[in-house]
Design a protein around this nucleic acid. Sequence first.
DNA 1: TTAGTATATCAAGATTTTTTGATGCATGAA
DNA 2: TTCATGCATCAAAAAATCTTGATATACTAA
Lengths: 108, 108
Amino acid sequence: MSKEVGTEDFLRTIGALNDETRLRILRFIDLYGPVCVCDIEAAFGMIQSRISRHLKILKEAKFLTVERRGHWAYYAIRLPLDKFRLDVLKEISYLEMNLPEFKGCCKI
Amino acid sequence: MSKEVGTEDFLRTIGALNDETRLRILRFIDLYGPVCVCDIEAAFGMIQSRISRHLKILKEAKFLTVERRGHWAYYAIRLPLDKFRLDVLKEISYLEMNLPEFKGCCKI
DNA sequence: TTAGTATATCAAGATTTTTTGATGCATGAA
DNA sequence: TTCATGCATCAAAAAATCTTGATATACTAA
């Protein structure tokens, strides 16, 4: 961040973090690298539209990027990440949260 | 932060930041040192119950402390601030926000 | 005591956000 | 083509948050 100008971007970033599900998804992706939506869906036991929405919010807040490959959309931590978002990710890594296991679900 | 355990504290911290008015109040207090509620009320042109509520949220998120002196309650940045909250305050200091002027309103 | 001021809190309405289920759009296989 | 799958998006209900006005508390001065 830092070179951003208005409060709007900052609020979008903060708003993206203001939800426990999104924190868990963010940490999950941070840990398990690029994953597709169905991986998250399966791991978290949540319906697809819900996951999809949270991913969109995290993407718009510039924490994530998507890359589409065939059927699948792979979400990953956006690189490079600015200092503030890195600080946030580190802070999240310290949190005691119950994260689901990762088991790849996509048959590629 | 960092030594905090659950996501609850983190979410309280993030939630406190997830409001433009609170960002402005936080920056205002960061700039103008300990101020009383009526100072903020006067500067921001908002009613007292609204300011009071936001101050409470910022205090519960450990950004602020209160010290009561006679009629007045002086709010200040909590010291010492942990690294994450310091990072946040610095990030907020970069934001282009329109902050009201400070004019002490309390006749002590 | 009484009155006035600064602040906190409550309840109700307004606004925003989250969740769900339905639908639509691609892609790739048959 | 046709069909199934992965994902995005929409609308409506549910839940959370913000704002306001009213009221309560606590302190001070007269």
